[in-house]
Write a protein that binds this DNA or RNA. Structure first.
Length: 423
RNA sequence: GGAGAGGUGGGUGAGUGGCUGAAACCAACAGUUUGCUAAACUGUCGUACGGGAAACUGUACCGGGGGUUCGAAUCCCCCCCUCUCCGCCA
């Protein structure tokens, strides 16, 4: 969530930037400002009242000790009035606070100045294109046909076991998954990330802190009896490692990497581009998460972007990087780069990674801060990126590497697969 | 799931109604001393929200929420969590 001080001090700019996300904040921001005034007035009044009560209570204690019960009892009567006024103020304060909080968490993050305007993916800005490896001609089957041909992914059985969007990987298909996960983790380790294995279910507080709630309620699987959510990405548990904490300056930047299965209900997306591995309810992903000082977060974003690009080059996949336009960005992000690989069988780009800087948006909810060298406390910045999500990588790999007698495995993955070809 | 014990500052841990935002010790940080390291000594050492140009100051917070009381870390109720034993179990 946004810092109240920014809304208060730079109201016009906030509204302007929100418009980039096609978000009209006029009403909600004015409500927030009004509630904030109420909150502050009530708090000041209540604090003063409390101060008086504290003084009286102290005096009463002293009087009793001196045996002056009459005087003490006389003072007691005065406190009754203070108490009832305090109660009233307290209720007013609490309701203002709660209302304020409810509104505040519904305001999306401000997009960075460099975010291009626009409404849909059409308006995203291609910032890097590496298309030399896109085949200019030839027949390339889509991955679902290849999956069937070589019996490596069984969609029908997955559907029978669970439902659509839960594929069953078999034989070399399963081994390729495992190889990719290990490859991605090893690469991240080499780049200085620390590997963590997070829980796959989180409580509401965690889902709230990274911004999935209340914005994405309904997109997560929810185990009602235990009030737990299946994670849509490792970002949620891994970022929540630092909820309610104050890191030391020397601990920054925090660089974590985690493999996890991810679960998404994908409600509302039935029927479009859901064939094969294109859109799943359960998939595997290796996620990188960083916590940085505010002044370093954009440099870190570029580093993460370069890192992900490096992975795709090593996998010999044609790809492009797009900077998301305001309308296509997520609720929580200030700047996002999407990575798209070329699907030779489907003749289109597939999103395989999203690298974002959330600035202080998540940290404000997480209460994630750090103490600088002078002992001053600041809100940290958080970033994360997929590095990478498996299914569409697998789709692109299978489709692009079709050879006469099977599917050739990219050189760098061969030691991880311990086979060179799927046939 | 059943029974019991317990949750206090970064850690250990004292504190059963007012003088306690909280002893002491450890850790951490700054400095002094020493030829270096170590040690010793001195000092600093919670967070949030208000007020103030600042020095500073008000309020709240001892797992969370509610209650009793003039006054709660301390008493009462509910919830959560941890530990021990039993049960179940990869």
């Amino acid at each position: 969530m946004l810092q109240l001080s920014i809304i208060r001090e730079k109201t016009a700019e906030v509204l302007e930037r929100l418009k980039l996300k096609n978000y009209d904040g006029a009403q909600i921001i004015s409500d927030i400002l009004r509630l904030d005034d109420t909150r502050r007035e009530s708090q000041k009044a209540l604090d003063d009242l409390q101060a008086q009560s504290n003084i009286l209570a102290k005096e009463i204690g002293i009087l009793f000790k001196q045996g002056k019960a009459d005087e003490a009892n006389a003072l007691k009567e005065k406190t009754a009035d203070l108490k009832s006024r305090a109660k009233e103020l307290d209720e007013k304060l609490e309701s203002a606070r709660k209302e304020l909080e409810d509104l505040l968490v519904r305001v999306p993050n401000l997009p960075h100045q460099s975010v291009p305007p626009g409404k849909t993916a059409e308006d995203n800005e291609v910032v890097l294109l590496e298309d030399a490896l896109i085949p200019s001609s030839g027949d390339y089957l889509p991955h679902w046909e290849l999956a069937a041909k070589y019996d490596i992914i069984d969609f029908a059985t997955g559907t029978r076991i669970t439902g659509a969007g839960f594929p069953l990987y078999k034989g070399k298909g399963a081994r390729l998954q495992r190889a990719l996960i290990n490859f991605f983790l090893d690469q991240a380790l080499a780049a200085g990330y620390t590997e963590v294995q997070p829980p796959y279910m989180v409580n509401a507080a965690s889902a709230f802190a990274t911004g999935q709630l209340p914005d994405k309620d309904g997109q997560m699987y929810y185990a009602q009896v235990d009030e737990l959510y299946l994670i849509p990405t490792a970002e949620v548990p891994v970022t929540n490692i630092y909820r309610d904490s104050i890191l030391k300056a020397r601990d920054l930047p925090v660089k974590n990497v985690a493999y996890s299965a991810c679960f998404r209900r994908e409600a509302g997306s039935y029927g479009k581009d859901v064939r094969g591995l294109n859109r799943l309810h359960q998939f595997d992903k290796v996620e990188i998460v960083q916590v940085t000082r505010p002044e370093n977060s954009y440099q870190t974003l570029e580093e993460m972007r370069d890192y992900v690009a490096g992975l795709l080059r090593k996998l010999e996949l044609p790809f492009r990087i797009v900077k998301l336009c305001g309308g296509d960005m997520s609720f929580t992000s200030a700047l996002t780069y999407d990575f798209e690989v070329w699907s030779a069988g489907q003749k289109r780009w597939l999103e395989v990674s999203s690298v974002s800087n959330f600035e202080a948006f998540q940290s404000n909810r997480l209460k994630l801060r750090y103490k600088d060298e002078a002992g001053k406390i600041h809100t940290a910045h958080t970033l994360n990126g997929s590095a990478l999500a498996l299914p569409r990588i697998v789709a692109a790999l299978l489709e692009l590497n079709q050879v006469n007698d099977g599917i050739s495995i990219p050189t760098i993955l061969r030691p991880y697969c311990s086979f060179k070809i799927i046939n």
